[in-house]
Design a protein around this nucleic acid. Sequence first.
DNA 1: TTTTAACCGAGACGGTACGTCTTGTCTTATA
DNA 2: TATAAGACAAGACGTACCGTCTCGGTTAAAA
Lengths: 184, 184, 184, 184
Amino acid sequence: MRSEAARAAILQATVRLVQDRGYDRLTIEGIAAEAGVGKQTIYRWWPSRAALVADCLLGGLLLRDRFELPNTGNLRDDLVAWVSSIFELLGKPQGEMLMRSLIAAATENVDVGLRLYESLGTDSSLTGRLQSAIDASELRPDAPLDEMREALVGAVILRALSRLPAGEGVAERLVDVVLGSATA
Amino acid sequence: MRSEAARAAILQATVRLVQDRGYDRLTIEGIAAEAGVGKQTIYRWWPSRAALVADCLLGGLLLRDRFELPNTGNLRDDLVAWVSSIFELLGKPQGEMLMRSLIAAATENVDVGLRLYESLGTDSSLTGRLQSAIDASELRPDAPLDEMREALVGAVILRALSRLPAGEGVAERLVDVVLGSATA
Amino acid sequence: MRSEAARAAILQATVRLVQDRGYDRLTIEGIAAEAGVGKQTIYRWWPSRAALVADCLLGGLLLRDRFELPNTGNLRDDLVAWVSSIFELLGKPQGEMLMRSLIAAATENVDVGLRLYESLGTDSSLTGRLQSAIDASELRPDAPLDEMREALVGAVILRALSRLPAGEGVAERLVDVVLGSATA
Amino acid sequence: MRSEAARAAILQATVRLVQDRGYDRLTIEGIAAEAGVGKQTIYRWWPSRAALVADCLLGGLLLRDRFELPNTGNLRDDLVAWVSSIFELLGKPQGEMLMRSLIAAATENVDVGLRLYESLGTDSSLTGRLQSAIDASELRPDAPLDEMREALVGAVILRALSRLPAGEGVAERLVDVVLGSATA
DNA sequence: TTTTAACCGAGACGGTACGTCTTGTCTTATA
DNA sequence: TATAAGACAAGACGTACCGTCTCGGTTAAAA
């Protein structure tokens, strides 16, 4: 019978440590100590620290609602707001580190990678928002939604890797590039 | 006086080991052994293994000419060919591992990140190619080149993280998304 | 819960290596390899290689019964036999190296020093033998036993440091010097 | 052409470092730095750090005149004074460390060992003093001077290894033990 | 109700790699 | 041409974690 208390403590400890020190300084021993748990309890349920991060991400513990994609009826505005909020996070040292931690975890774990691939680990509202834009005739019915999403999310990931601050207008231009071919 | 022989041996050993086993199994001790070099000689000149990878990338030792961006005069065809060749590499286990290795290194080292940011670590011909497309009136003079590049390269990075095979037509649609707003 | 198997393997490996190569070429890594043990298992229980040697000495693993002090009823003969047997050991390269190893360890570790101080690391029968000589009226009741022991053992230590072969009659003269003032 | 300045600087640096930090923390690199000299200059002229210490000892740089054996005409008093002065040195932390440093060096280098063997590294006046005691009929003509010296010096060495403070009367009793058989 | 089997915390174990330190050799440039 | 300066290959240092493996000490279901 699995102990739910232990499970929760482990995931929370993981979140705390990733946010405080980053993925590369995250250790199983550190998590066990922080969670007040034996190492074996971690190894019993997760195969690697990357899988732990994946679980945190899945449970919404790492990016919960941070980047809710709004739906005001104006797709461009919504996307710009969303991208801007992410860029804002990247502007803070801890936010930038968190994003890089997720990317690092993704290089080791498919689940994390897939989770990022669908809108940056958030409740993948991006696909839904684009689809609803088609329904509202804001986008052409044959717009390549997947590729648009990949371009948008990918640009954000790449920005995080570059560690460059996103200057004025970057979010707008990025959204325009992505929407360009697909708007009426 | 720095030994050029040692420097070259270290970089080559790094390239070999990254390609064979991936970044996460790359160790300083392994590099030193492979290069026939003392560990201190590595630590004397590089602060971390990520910096070593950055140097390899800079020296063109890791991706040299792998993704030469052609210039046939037709921008769309050129970009599709370039993206396709990258997708092809990602289809092979070793190629995928190499790309993920670079991304992992980028999460630890700004230089690697910047190098990826400008066209995927290749001799950043992408910017030049886009500029020449403006000159040839293939693109609008005010096309947001940087954001176009970010979207394109970012999509490729993200694809690597997702480990999903790039299906039929993905390269084309991706290029079309990116070029959409800027052509004609 | 400490592993007795590991403890024994480590001490035995230490003994073997000290005897084969001497204290100055004794390394923690070498002991760990020889014992088939992780380095941390050594560091967990001993603070230094000198402490390891002290433990071996204490456990009788290094000089066990090598220099049993006989008790024939004739103190002078017994001491001469004992000193001679030590000089004989010092005549062999390995024996000399072992003795110098112990002295070297003693310079770094009090316990080894004390163990040498009381009769050369052997089960300190020397004090007992001298006491029984008083009881048998072979020595004056007020004979300064401690100083006699120090003089005798010290002379042996010093001989080991000098690396000079102990010539004919040295053992006898040494014992006579030490016993001189204390024999009826 | 050997640089006398370098030679002196090296020996003085050795003395300083041995006295300050002890033999086990004495390194060739440290000496070179302290002396403002290249390492090669040391290796060119001395085979090991123990040989360096031997040279310092020989040159009187380490124990110069520290333990001058007096000659008042009363052998016992002279020896007691000499042993007491050594015990006094051993009572100070730095003096004890210095003596242990010499012993440690002796385990690695014959010259140091021999130097200790003949009266503790001092200008070997001990033998001379004993001889003159014979001449003055303070000792029997056939007294075993060598063994007496070994017993006395050895006891002091051993005391240093034991790190035990020499209590009241130890010096006297020690001298009496050694002189016992040879007086009157 | 008692057994028993799984899970728990704790942490020792054999290992690997870390980044530092020192060794003794070598090369360079300085004077 | 002997130096100081210091790079080099080698390898030990002591530390940090890895993933596996006992330990006893709770639980909770099965007997």
